[in-house]
Amino acid sequence: MRTKQAFIAGVAILAAATMTSAVPGGGTVSGKVTYEGTPAKQKPIDMSKEPSCAKQYATPPPTETVVTGPNNALENVVVYISAGAPDEPPPSQAAVLAQKGCRYLPHVLAFQVNQELKITNEDQTSHNIHPLAKINREWNKSQPPGTPPISDKYDKMEFIPVKCNVHPWMHGTFAVMKNSHYSITGADGGFTLPDLPPGKYTVTAFHESYGDQTQEVSIAGSETKSVNFVFKAKPY
């Protein structure tokens, strides 16, 4: 499951990289996000209420609010340029959130302001998508099986918790970004923000449970600057 997610995230990054107005051959910020301390256990999700989903798993899938990798790597962290880069128009491709096996794929979906968001239901049950937006417009819609994808756009930058009212364990995050310079950490906690023109940038790392951290970085030419983030993990 996790590899598939990493794959999707990877595709998203690739897609983002090829579509932006960024400078090819510019500078790069890369690094690793880790945690220190004891993170909460990933607990198995009991889906017995929804048999059509439960039967898709040999062992119950784990919770994804904190996902860790080897060497204290922290997954699902959105690393992005929060200041220093201009706002960019959205790419033409849609960002896709799939609901499959009563989970959100991917758990964290990043896309740009005004980029088309498509939500599909691949399950045999009716889902409900309720992005709990505070800055953007909040909505709450059901998607019965067999209905067309739900399309939407967000016009302001925001990290939006997403939940399914019908299946309480389904939680995810929308990261609405102002530009194309963002990356979501995979199992190794690594990220890369390429194609940055020379300049001063603020790099921010956001994790849905642990909040955000920022660092300043200056890029000159086509150099690669290394930036690492360390989050404090709590067992509960």
Partner: peptide
């Protein structure tokens, strides 16, 4: 209460 993290009742184990 934190449903994503399976804390459905709102316990405070910390």
């Amino acid at each position: 209460i934190d449903e994503g993290n399976q804390n459905y009742f709102g316990l405070d184990p910390a």
